[in-house]
Amino acid sequence: MNSAIIRHAIWPLLIALALAFVLVGSGLDLAYVIPRRLLRLAAMVLGGVCVAWSSIAFQSITGNRILTPAIMGYEALYLLLQALLILTLGSASLALLGHHGNVLLSMLCMLGYSWALHRWLLGNGKNNLYFLLLFGLVLTLVLTTFTQFIQLRISPGEFSVLQGFAYTSFNRADGQQLLYSGALVLGVGVVGFKTLPSLDVLALGRDQALSLGVDYPRYVRLYLALIAILVAVSTSLLGPTAFMGIFVANITYALARSSRHRLTLPLGCAIAISLFIVAQFLVEQVFNYKTTVGILVNLVCGAYFLALMIRSRGDA
């Protein structure tokens, strides 16, 4: 009963939060303040959907409640790729490849990474969860080191472009990028929604899924591809979100009290968006820009993850 109330209450709450975010202290300035805030809100909505959807789907196909794409090194890889692009092509790389080219290339790389990860680490389903987690954390550190190394090689102007990528922020995206991202997320959403019941079955594990007539390898590949696209979109829109995904996913499971994706995915999206709005609101109104969303997210979600691991019983 309780979970039903939460499921229904979250939407009005989300709308109220969004309205408050757009209107509070805006002076109803329709010419500048409100459009700017709407852009930020759009970035949060898209980013929230990406983070929640990719994390929950990733946890379902890997059969645990800890691993998320961000932890398995997806975001670090994205940032390394951006650094490499700037190193090899200069900051003109954005202009040279065009926005589409960059996004397309990033997605191809993420798809390749998904494939490699699945082929060697996740595929057999026999690897210990903590082992995968340690692998992901260390890989993230190593990739970050390489990114920093490349930063040394590039000129200061390009450095600042790159530095911008490395922090969570809602101000990065312009209208056009939001439009493309929105279209991509919509596309993923349509495919994802069509195959939603299969995702429920995938969560039962390879053997059970096959036995229930779901072509497990095919659907896992499909979902890894969708996840790769979502992570690429969210990282390009917001920057790295690190432990946000794990936080959102676990809060969602606790509130939804169900593992049906029909319930968890929308709820997860709502929670992620709300958290982003609250964080941004805190940064703007409470901390007076003396902190950033990225730092807040790291602090809160990191502490939550630490607590989760310490309390872990090994069956997560």
């Binding site: 210990n128 903590y130 082992f131 987690l133 340690l134 954390l137 260390v138 550190l141 990191g302 993850f305 630490l306 691991m309 310490i310 872990s312 090994g314």
Partner: peptide, 11 residues
């Protein structure tokens, strides 16, 4: 679990 310790340490 031997791998849990460094995971918690990194976190």
């Amino acid at each position: 679990h031997s791998v849990l310790v460094p995971v918690i340490g990194l976190m």
